[in-house]
Nucleic acid binder design. Structure first.
Lengths: 204, 204
DNA sequence: TATAGCTTGACTGACGGTCAGTCAGGATAT
DNA sequence: ATATCCTGACTGACCGTCAGTCAAGCTATA
């Protein structure tokens, strides 16, 4: 095989990109290191020069996916043009996923046996997204839209529920079951955050 | 190796028991088929005579663990001696796990590298435990202790939150972080279920 | 032209899974 | 009673796959 030398950063990014594509396409467990290097046309050793294990690149991929997601959310939180209600809609709405990466996650990633990747992403999603969400909630508290004692912890609980119940393909709800659960979540959100009724009408 | 013949049911149970013990001790991924058969003193083929794959026995083990859990909960729901508050405490309390199997789950199972087993158990736990929980909630509604529009769907959301945030070792909260999250859950439960304040004081 | 950084690919060992064959003990025929 | 056949549980050598290793080779650049 002809030898192509690249600098550290570029090669590493190339590996992460390739792995990300494969993990989100055919799943973590179905992706072999051999497949990754084959698609990159490099040798086995090259992969292990950059990553000590398959777990390690899972970590990188998960963080990469999350970085995008968090950046989007942070942009949303900072945006003064958008109403609080709309911000929450874009984060909580089970159907609406504006950003491309979230699409990847919800659609392709979740089909199969990807529990390891899921877990890594979900845990960090909750930990990293919740502070941003709290910024939004606190805007709402200042405007007397909400009333909660423990915004951060409350938001984390709600996020976990939303994430695992809707975003994952773990539960295969049909259309009506899905709607019923959305309605329940609407009430839970409104009551937990102490908003007025129908504040989360986008969940109707 | 000397040949020992047993009847189908006994041998199958023996395999499930051995696998359960190993899965909950050293984890699913760390448990090899070879280890299972070694501990049973049977040959590889014997295992595959009873189970078509490692996944298949995971399924059996998960269901087994759940059966115990669900039976306990159902017994609890049917028990007329215990107050509704106490029943909910025993199911929702993050620390109190009376039954042995739940102990196994929370302590050993969750170490790491068990995402597959976790997911299988959690999903089915939510699906199977929620109807039982609804029985209890509806007792409460009759006694005017609660007011909720969609008990089943609400309970499922709350269960998911409690399960993933507390029962798993996914988030490694320290003592105080733990307490804060319990307090947040207390308010969420009380508000979502429309109970009076401090109904869930066991979470204090 | 020396060397640090990058790359190669043959090799290893672990593990899930396969399969042809063994064997005890029960049923059936003589 | 006993020879023959059959079934269902069991055996273990073997296979393919795949993560991870390593000694050696190339190449940019100082």
């Amino acid at each position: 095989m002809p030898r192509v030398t690249k600098n550290y950063k570029d090669r590493k990014k190339e590996i992460v990109d390739t792995a990300t594509r494969l993990f989100t396409t055919i799943g973590y467990e179905n992706t072999t290191i051999e497949r990754i290097i084959e698609e990159m046309s490099v040798a086995k050793g090259t992969f292990y020069y950059y990553f000590p294990s398959k777990e390690a690149i899972l970590e990188s991929v998960a963080n990469n996916i999350l970085d995008d997601l968090i950046n989007n959310a942070q942009g949303l939180a900072n945006n003064t043009q958008i109403s609080i209600s709309q911000k929450l809609e874009m984060i909580f709405s089970p159907t609406n996923n504006s950003n491309k990466t979230a699409q990847e996650i919800t659609e392709t990633l979740h089909h199969t046996e990807n529990s390891k990747l899921h877990q890594k992403i979900n845990v960090n999603l909750v930990l990293r997204l919740s502070p941003i969400l709290v910024e939004i909630i606190e805007q709402g508290i200042n405007e007397n839209l909400f009333e909660v004692e423990k915004p951060l912890e409350t938001v984390q609980f709600l996020l976990v529920g939303a994430q695992f119940l809707f975003k994952e393909q773990l539960f295969s709800w049909d259309k009506d079951e899905y709607k019923q659960r959305r309605l329940a979540m609407k009430q839970i959100l409104e009551r937990s955050l102490g908003s007025e009724e129908d504040f989360f009408k986008f969940l109707l």
